[in-house]
């Protein structure tokens, strides 16, 4: 592998001044490790493959415990409940909206039903009014007809009475004419003057016979 420039710079410094271990604390066991691995300066400052550098483990474990512990607490106490609340709220809201929609639909259905009921009632009422009007018109027409018929009948009766009256008068005149005529005829035939009373009686006799 490569002898890194970084190592090339730090290695002499580290060997010269052990105080430099403040900057590179893992260089402290480096001397031992170098002899163990036998490949000095192979990797970084310690000579071991960095992830297997045990010297870094306590620090990594402690800091992992601190950071992950804090992270877990924040997730547990803040983030997870908050996300659960957000999703729960949305779920509840959707469920509430759905039930509200269902309620409104039921309301609309009820309104439609009421409307149809009222429409049917109005139709029935309209039909009733029409029937009543028809009935009233019918009775009125019947009454009018009856009145007119009565009037006509009375007029007819009056006319008949007048006709009878005229007829009677005519018949009465017929007596006079017949008497005159009979008197004339008798005068012509027999040349005898007839008294009015005789002729009248004769005519009346004929009339009754007729």
């Amino acid at each position: 592998m490569f002898v890194t420039p970084a190592y090339a710079q730090t290695a002499p410094a580290a060997s010269e001044t052990p105080a430099a271990t403040v900057g590179e604390p893992h260089a402290a066991p480096a001397g031992e490790l170098h002899t163990e691995t036998g490949v000095p300066g192979d990797h970084g400052a310690t000579g071991v493959f960095p992830p297997f550098d045990f010297a870094t483990y306590p620090s990594q474990l402690v800091w992992l415990a601190i950071t992950f512990g804090i992270f877990f607490l924040v997730m547990h106490k803040v983030i997870a409940p908050r996300l659960a609340a957000i999703l729960g709220d949305r779920h509840d809201r959707i469920a509430a909206d759905l039930s509200e929609a269902g309620r409104l639909k039921a309301e609309a259905d009820a309104a439609v039903e009421t409307y149809e009921k009222e429409l049917a009632a109005a139709r029935a009422k309209g039909a009733g009014i029409a029937d009543a009007a028809r009935e009233a018109a019918k009775t009125k027409a019947a009454a009018d007809r009856a009145a007119i018929e009565e009037e006509l009948a009375s007029k007819l009766a009056a006319a008949e009475a007048r006709i009878a009256d005229i007829k009677a008068k005519a018949f009465a005149n017929v007596g006079d004419i017949a008497e005159e005529t009979a008197a004339g005829i008798v005068d012509q035939l027999i040349g005898a003057k007839t008294s009015g009373e005789e002729v009248k009686a004769a005519v009346a006799a004929v009339k009754t016979e007729a």
Binding site: F2, P5, A6, E24, H43, G44, P50, P51
Partner: peptide, 14 residues
């Protein structure tokens, strides 16, 4: 440093 592929894994104190 630039060419050592394992250098990126070195844990260095700050």
């Amino acid at each position: 440093m630039a060419n050592d592929p394992t250098h990126q894994f070195v844990v260095q104190p700050i």
